[in-house]
Nucleic acid binder design. Structure first.
Lengths: 140, 140
DNA sequence: ATTTATGCAAACATTTTGCAATAAA
DNA sequence: TTTATTGCAAAATGTTTGCATAAAT
């Protein structure tokens, strides 16, 4: 497991370590995601940046979110409202609740032997992970 | 909580109990979801039914899935592939590899005490989960 | 200089809506 | 008969792609 991505600086460093260039627009996105605690849609990210005089096009938003999420620099969650993106500052994992829909962040750590087992089974080195839970509140 | 919907018959009965008519097309959808063990997209359901000479239109597929899911007759999960519907939960985990980019599917099961811990900490009932790993191959 | 990233325009995919025809009860 | 359901056509959203330009290293 490599370093967790807790701060904006971590995210920018991780980009460079991955061979991704720290472009103006990429920085805009990362700054926004580290400034907010919400999960945002591509559309929302596009709107907020352009409203804040941080010009960026739709294509760049989508391409960046896709690249950053697939490399584990940011997180992506699927919701009925669409695809939402957020930072890893607090916790990597979350619970998707239904009725009413809500996302709860949760901090969990997988047993290291479970991770080792996955690495050995697949011939990989795991650098990061997150767990996505689905469920509902106890009351119902 | 009312009776669990375990069989196709249960699902059809539940429809009637809810005042929903058991139309030809609605039955097609429920039969398909109870025949398969996969979660299917609206598109996939549309295609499979029409290919099987069980004619149904796009609108009906969407309207039915929406109605059935919102009334708890079937289950709906949001995935990166889109919105999927089914009659049971599957835990599908994978590893996102970089350099070259590749996704490996992996079957893992979390320790039940870890899940219980999350449920207690958050006051929720976990019905499903998946783990997303990030990493790279051992060679690189 | 080299390679990655940008972003317009357009294609593509998914989901929703109006509404007249149809079928279940 | 009554009322829910169907499904066409079209619109509203959301996402991806080709490619020439621009920018990062």
């Amino acid at each position: 497991m490599s370093e967790p991505i807790a701060t904006l600086g971590d995210a920018l460093n991780r980009c460079q370590a991955l061979g991704m260039r720290v472009s103006r627009q990429r920085r805009f996105i990362l700054e926004l995601l580290w400034d907010t605690k919400e999960h945002l849609s591509a559309r929302e990210i596009y709107d907020r940046l352009n409203r804040a005089s941080k010009p960026i096009g739709h294509t760049s938003v989508y391409q960046n979110l896709e690249a950053l999420a697939s490399k584990g620099v940011i997180e992506c969650v699927e919701r009925s409202e669409g695809r939402l993106y957020g930072n890893f500052s607090d916790s990597h994992s979350h619970i998707n609740l239904t009725d009413p829909e809500q996302i709860i962040d949760v901090k969990i750590e997988l047993p290291s032997d479970l991770i080792k087992q996955v690495e050995q089974q697949t011939g990989t080195v795991i650098t990061d992970y997150r767990v996505e839970f689905f469920g509902h509140r106890v009351s119902s």
